[in-house]
Write a protein that binds this DNA or RNA. Structure first.
Lengths: 226, 226
DNA sequence: CTAATTTTGATGTCATCGCTCCAAAAATCC
DNA sequence: GGATTTTTGGAGCGATGACATCAAAATTAG
């Protein structure tokens, strides 16, 4: 879209690249997403990206650096809907996570990219040679779980969550369900099935501390268990 | 243990193997468990198993066949506690799954083997070359989810589960939580943290259809939400 | 003891992997 | 136009991956 404008506007001296860098990165991202780091070979990468080996190293450095860049690109893209829903100021905490699961079901089963999440299931089983990537993925996963915990804390502060909620445990639970959804998606679960799982998962939600204080109408008069 | 007896008892004519086949298989299983199929190289395998390349092919056929055998061995071993708890006739359905999560937390964090589950997170991202193994792992995962569904159906038949329970969805949810626990375990979650997640997950349990009908004492007078 | 049977150790093979090198090509700057 | 800068195509590299070959070694059956 705007890449051509940028390209012609600020191009330096040398020969111009014949490929669209963003498109190539996207192609690589989808390949990594589908096959993982080890499952994606160099030759498959440059074939899918439509570039030569020289252009590859000239533009992306190495397979490892490309993977990092692809991961960043993916996280930026998926972070838009993820944090968009999580930090939507107009919804209470419960609704935010409920919507998060709905969006997850939708995003994990779109036709325009591989099913599931690129980082949820990445580098879970690797040799010592990929220790760095593994730690990186662990950090990414911990980050999103931390963001969930933050949202829950905000809910407590705003009064739509019980003050005695064990934030870290609840966040770990919600995170675990999301990882489980990623596995289910990879195994071919349907969008509706995943949405159903999300709805069941929300039944574990803590009961309202003071009914009537939530920001959104409806869906807040359940709970009351335990 | 008994391998030596079996060995001397039914050994045929030729030169006797110098290694313990079961021990070698166990070593290979742990390596696959930790590093996955692609992440485990041939040389690493024979080194960990303490055998030569010829003995490897003579005894196990190929890396792929060894992986299948290792998976079978793993499933037989983990199936002992899994199905032992799931099909324990002395517990009601809810208690069975509650114990299943407790056992999962314990088994996923033992010191004598890699954390998490060998099949829950296996072959989730692979190239076309490993299509067969991927499908095999998908089947294994579907099998355990099916076993959960069976147990829930039994609970309905025996009256300790609501008759209008959506069995497949509940099983998919419980399965997803288990997969999520496997991811958390791989990322280094503690046993206690995983047990906590399991306890939160059980809050999504359907309410009792007819209080007082369950087989075990205590822990059956909660529910009542929704 | 001899023959038959099986495992073992030591190489060897062939494809792939991720990566590098270098000269030619295509643009800009002066 | 010439110098400069950057990308491109193509060939090749060392290392590793999984597997194969085969004679020697170690056992038992007869």
């Amino acid at each position: 879209m705007t890449s051509k404008l940028v390209q012609t506007a600020k191009r330096g001296r040398g020969r111009p690249p014949v490929f669209d860098r963003e498109a190539a990165l996207m192609a690589a991202t989808k390949l990594f997403w589908e096959r993982g780091y080890e499952g994606t070979s160099f030759d498959e990468l440059i074939a899918a990206m439509g570039i030569s080996a020289s252009s590859f190293y000239n533009s992306f450095g190495s397979k490892e650096r490309l993977y990092c860049e692809a991961t960043s690109s993916y996280l930026e893209s998926s972070g838009r809907w993820f944090f968009g829903i999580l930090n939507d100021e107009s919804t209470d905490t419960r609704t935010a996570f409920s919507r998060l699961f709905d969006a997850t079901a939708e995003e994990f089963t779109r036709g325009d990219h591989p099913p599931g999440c690129m980082v949820s299931v990445a580098c879970l089983q690797t040799g010592p040679g990929l220790k760095n990537m593994r730690e990186m993925m662990v950090e990414h996963r911990a980050f999103s779980e931390g963001a969930m915990a933050e949202r829950i804390r905000k809910g407590i502060a705003e009064g739509d969550m019980p003050s005695d909620t064990d934030v870290d445990v609840l966040a770990a639970y919600l995170s675990a369900v999301a990882r489980g959804l990623a596995v289910q998606a990879r195994d071919g679960a349907s969008r509706e099935r995943m949405a159903q799982i999300g709805r069941v998962a929300m039944r574990a939600w803590p009961s309202d501390p003071a009914p009537g204080k939530s920001k959104t109408v409806g869906s807040s008069k359940r709970g009351a268990h335990q």
